[in-house]
Simulated scan of single mutants.
Amino acid sequence: MRINVFPALNGDCILVEYVASHYILIDGGYVNTYNNYLLPKLVEIANNGGTVDVVVVTHIDEDHISGIIKLLEEDVFPISIKEIWYNGYKHVQSVAIVSEEDEIFAHKNICKETNVINPKSISAKQGCTLSTLIARKGLLWNSPTKGNTMKGLISYSLGDATIHILSPNNDDISNVELFWKKRLIKDGLLSKAHSNEYWDDAFEFCLSKEKPGFHFHKKKVSKSYDLIKIKEEAYVPDDSATNGSSIAFVLEVEGKRILFLGDAHAETIVESLITLYGEKNAPFRFDAVKLSHHGSFNNNSPKLLEIITCDNWLISTNGDKYDHPDLPTLAHIITNENNNAPKLYFNYNLTVSKELMKQEYHKDNNFEIICPDDDGITITL
């Protein structure tokens, strides 16, 4: 198995070759991630006879969906894509009927058009057309649930692999619906019924612009950091409805077990893992873990990190915007006795990764920092 974590700025774009020539694509980062890294790789794979069996769009957020939208906008896909997993508006609906005038209102006021001013932007509408593109392209959509909402806990066979969907759960989906209803109430549209394309756009735009539901860990990296003391910081869970809707899953294939957490809430993951594997069997062994929400401590709780044992930890972020990953997250991983000389893989050279390479941190803790090359990081299991 080979896992590529591409440079995706503060987002995610992960390509997994789970068996030879068969791939799972998890999110697409921003447009420049697609153009500079993902597209050339997909062309190379296609030329060698490979296919993307599943595209997993974990949730509605610019740093996850923008590159996927760019991929689906192609007249001809650069590679064969068999199916897509993504929870769009039709999977989380509020009843509303609107006139053409109200549709125009929703499109212009909820899904406001903006000018493209930087490479992160994906289009004049900031990436609120993913559902429409999936429908137009006729892609097989959420096949494990027969087109319904992808949510845990379910297990699904994908060739020789098994995928266990851990998140979102029913409560997470309800929170997204509540968030959307509040926006409709604000604009006086809740008592009216929805139509399709306008509301796909408005729904996606609304969620992609949700304010962060996590604590900003303002910090300065210094060699004076005490990892034991840092891990004592109080945990405050993320309450973002959008992040809570993130599709997170376990991939099991050829005796390997990988945990891909998207931006999911730690509480949902803990509940699903205990249900899936049995609390008495904790800590649960994984061959690799992609940390939730770029290593945010609000999405990687002490409880979650306590019930996992793993030697390979993947961190996808350039540290922009919210200064992820958070040191308490890394401190819990490094000092956890369940982890045997853990390796922390970064897809960007960050101040914190460089700091943790200093010998002072390794006197009492056995761990390794793996820095990226120009194309991000690749690990083979």
Rank of each mutant, 00 (worst) to 15 (best):
I230F: 13
K218C: 01
N175T: 01
A248N: 04
S246P: 03
L166D: 04
K209R: 13
G159I: 03
L184F: 06
K209P: 05
K209Y: 08
S224A: 15
K231F: 03
K218R: 09
F249E: 06
K219V: 04
D160A: 10
W180C: 04
N170D: 15
I165R: 03
P212S: 05
K182T: 09
Y198C: 13
E233N: 08
V236S: 14
D239N: 09
F203Y: 15
S240A: 11
D172C: 09
F216P: 00
I230Y: 08
F205C: 12
G244S: 04
N170Q: 12
P237K: 10
L189E: 11
I247S: 02
N196F: 12
K186R: 10
G213Y: 09
D160F: 07
K186L: 11
V253G: 00
D226S: 14
S246W: 00
I173N: 07
I230T: 15
S167K: 04
S208D: 13
I228S: 09
E252L: 00
V221P: 02
F249H: 03
G213W: 06
S240P: 02
T162D: 14
L207I: 08
G159K: 05
P168R: 07
D187P: 01
K219D: 09
Y235F: 15
K220V: 13
L184I: 02
S191E: 13
H215S: 15
S167T: 06
A234L: 14
L158W: 05
V221H: 12
Y225R: 07
F179T: 08
E177P: 01
K231C: 04
F249C: 00
S174Y: 08
D187T: 02
I247R: 01
Y235L: 09
E232W: 03
F179K: 11
G244N: 05
V253M: 05
P237G: 10
L227G: 12
L207R: 06
L166E: 04
I173E: 08
R183P: 00
L158V: 06
W180I: 03
H194Q: 08
I163V: 15
S222K: 10
L227V: 09
Y198I: 15
N196A: 12
E210H: 03
V250S: 02
A161T: 02
S240F: 02
H215T: 14
L207V: 01
L227W: 07
V250E: 04
K223P: 12
I230C: 12
S208E: 11
S195Q: 12
Y235N: 06
V176Q: 07
R183I: 11
T242K: 07
N169V: 06
K231D: 03
L158K: 05
L178Q: 08
S191P: 00
G244H: 04
N170E: 15
K182M: 09
D187I: 06
K211I: 01
D187K: 05
G188A: 08
W180A: 03
S167H: 02
F214P: 00
E252Q: 10
A248P: 01
S240C: 09
D160L: 10
V250G: 02
S222Y: 13
A248G: 09
G213A: 06
